[in-house]
Structures are given as structure tokens and as C-alpha cells.
């Protein structure tokens, strides 16, 4: 069959395990895109490697999918977004992907505060390689594939994100699709680098952090009367960031989900570029007409003359 004869696109059959938390994340993402009325053609879903990496291929919304390398989804996404800031960029990465092999990019994405959303599929294991411990699995936990209890302490993605400069930091739960969808909509509407760390049971390899484990522990920050994570004045930044970091360490009988921190006052990387390059938002790199009748439209005369001796 010639592809060019095909008029419509068909999503790929999903090969995730039955009961996988990824289904909830996928569903929430599709709903968020639809409910916000985003033009699917201008949405780019970027992913890394792992079970989460296949997410763009499984989407029922006609988006663009860029399935990249292990750990590097944020780097690709950065190039896409900066070259064309008109695109809406959503990154999906696993916990091993974003916080293990890709931790460098995770930190630096915060420093840049690019207008993108990162969704971390956080299940505590490297499922695609049969269940090794991921960077978010807590010390001493022995999931079923581990020969010994985990010897490493877990990283706290929310605290690292806040310390790195993310301006929207939230945690969702894969089995509460509605709540997760609402978080995603807020993240997509936020102007700046957003993280949603999604607690996601892995029914196949994580027999500790199961649906039952989470169902009885998670509670919603939105339902807490005194919880106000939004920075409204520059002098509130430190206080709110510290409160959010404190909150992010709450883990045990009760596990908070919802918005931990949001700062809308910080300029984005794109804003910083636009200070030096006029027309950046209207005429970004991707849309510049660099060629006319087979010739370059770039005028070199002045640049060459600066080299005259």
C-alpha cells in the first residue's frame, strides 16, 4: 500500500501491559489537548525511550509525534520549541529517562524556563528492560525483579525541578484521569517550563507502589484550605519555593498530588531571545524564507565588510 494513497492516519495499537498507568496519562493528555481546543497540527508530542516513549504513536488526537533517544527528549523538544515558538510542545519521559540518563537536561530545562510541558511517567522501575530500579524508587524497597533491596536513595523530582528553575511543578496520579487532565490543562496554559510528575503503578514490575498502595495514600492539595502555591509577587518566590519543596518530601501514609508551585512572573527563554532578535515570535527560525529562486536571501555585504583590512 502506498502511503500517499492513505487519507487518514490510524493510531498504532498499544502494546502496554493491561492496567498500565500509561493509559491514564495518554487519556488525560488527549482530553487536555481536545478540551483546550489546541490545533493538533501545531502540537508536538516528544518522547524518549521506555514504555512512555511510545506514547505519541498511540495518541488518538492527530498530533505530531517525535519519538527520540533515551534521556534526550528534552533536548530535542528545546530545539523544536526555540526554532518555532508557535508550536505547543509536550514532552513525555519515564523516570529513568528524565531523571537517570537525562538528568542533565532535566536540570537545564529549568534554568531556561522554556514554554513547554514535561510529563514524567514515574513508576519506580525500568519496565522495558524488565524491572530494574529507577531513580525514583526509594532506598530499601525490593520490587519483584530486584535481586536485593534498592541500594540507592531516591531522587525527589519536584524538589530538583523547583531548585532548577521550573516555574510550574505538579504531581499527578495516573489513575485519577480527571485530576491529571486538569493539571495538564493548567500546565499547558502556563507560560514557562512545567513539570508534572505522574505517579504511575507498573502492574508488571512494581509490586510495591501499586494501585492499592496509591489509592489509599494520595490526597489533593487543591482540597487543602491553606494551600496556595502560586507566586503573585517577586518577594514571594523564595517562600513559596521552599514551602513547595517541604511539601514534596511528604511521603508515607499520605502522598500529596496537585500543584506544588507556580511562578508566572519569570520571563521565558523565548522572551530572553526576543530581546536580542527582533521579530523572533512573528518570524522565528523555522519560518524564515531563507531561499528565493534557488538563492540565499541573507544579505552578506555588511558582514563581509566588517572583515575588511
Amino acid at each position: 500500500m502506498q502511503a500517499s494513497e492513505v487519507k487518514t492516519h490510524k493510531p498504532v495499537w498499544s502494546d502496554w501491559c493491561p492496567g498500565c498507568g500509561n493509559f491514564g496519562i495518554l487519556r488525560a493528555e488527549e482530553l487536555a489537548i481536545r478540551e483546550l481546543g489546541l490545533d493538533p497540527k501545531s502540537v508536538v508530542v516528544v518522547s524518549g525511550i521506555g514504555c512512555s516513549g511510545k506514547l505519541p504513536h498511540f495518541m488518538n488526537v492527530p498530533i505530531n509525534g517525535v519519538h527520540t533517544l533515551h534521556g534526550r527528549a528534552l533536548a530535542f523538544a528545546t530545539g523544536i520549541k526555540l526554532a518555532n515558538p508557535k508550536l505547543k510542545v509536550i514532552v513525555n519521559a519515564g523516570d529513568g529517562d528524565a531523571l537517570g540518563i537525562g538528568m542533565g537536561h532535566f536540570v537545564h530545562a529549568g534554568r531556561r524556563n522554556i514554554d513547554m510541558v514535561l510529563i514524567v511517567h514515574d513508576n519506580g522501575v525500568y519496565a522495558l528492560t524488565k524491572g530494574q530500579a529507577s531513580p525514583t524508587l526509594r532506598k530499601g524497597i525490593k520490587t519483584k525483579s530486584l535481586p536485593k533491596p534498592n541500594v540507592n536513595e531516591a531522587v525527589n523530582p519536584l524538589a530538583v525541578a523547583i531548585a532548577s528553575g521550573y516555574t510550574f511543578v505538579a504531581r499527578g496520579y495516573a489513575y485519577d484521569v480527571n485530576h491529571l487532565k486538569e493539571l495538564m490543562k493548567r500546565a499547558l496554559n502556563h507560560r514557562g517550563m512545567a513539570l508534572i510528575d505522574v505517579l504511575q503503578p507498573c502492574p508488571t514490575y512494581n509490586d510495591v507502589n501499586t494501585k492499592e498502595f496509591y489509592d489509599k495514600r494520595v490526597y489533593k492539595l487543591e482540597e487543602q484550605k491553606d494551600w496556595d502555591p502560586v507566586v503573585r509577587k517577586p518577594e514571594e518566590v523564595q517562600e513559596k519555593a521552599l514551602k513547595a519543596i517541604m511539601k514534596s518530601f511528604e511521603w508515607g501514609e499520605r502522598i500529596p498530588i496537585g500543584l506544588f508551585y507556580q511562578n508566572t512572573l519569570e520571563e521565558t527563554y523565548e522572551d530572553r531571545i526576543a530581546k536580542y532578535i527582533e521579530n523572533y515570535f512573528d518570524y522565528p527560525p523555522a519560518l524564515q524564507e531563507i531561499e528565493k529562486d534557488g538563492k540565499s536571501t541573507t544579505l552578506m555585504d555588511k558582514l563581509l565588510k566588517t572583515r575588511r583590512i
Binding site: V46, V66, T68, L69, R72, A75, F76, A77, T78, G79, I80, K81, L82, A83, N84, L87, P285, A286, L287
Partner: peptide
């Protein structure tokens, strides 16, 4: 990888 990402946008 950033350069590749940018190249995908044209």
C-alpha cells in the same frame, strides 16, 4: 539533539 529538533521544524 537540539539541532536535530530545530531541523525538524524547517
Amino acid at each position: 539533539n537540539m539541532a536535530s529538533g530545530a531541523a525538524l521544524t524547517g
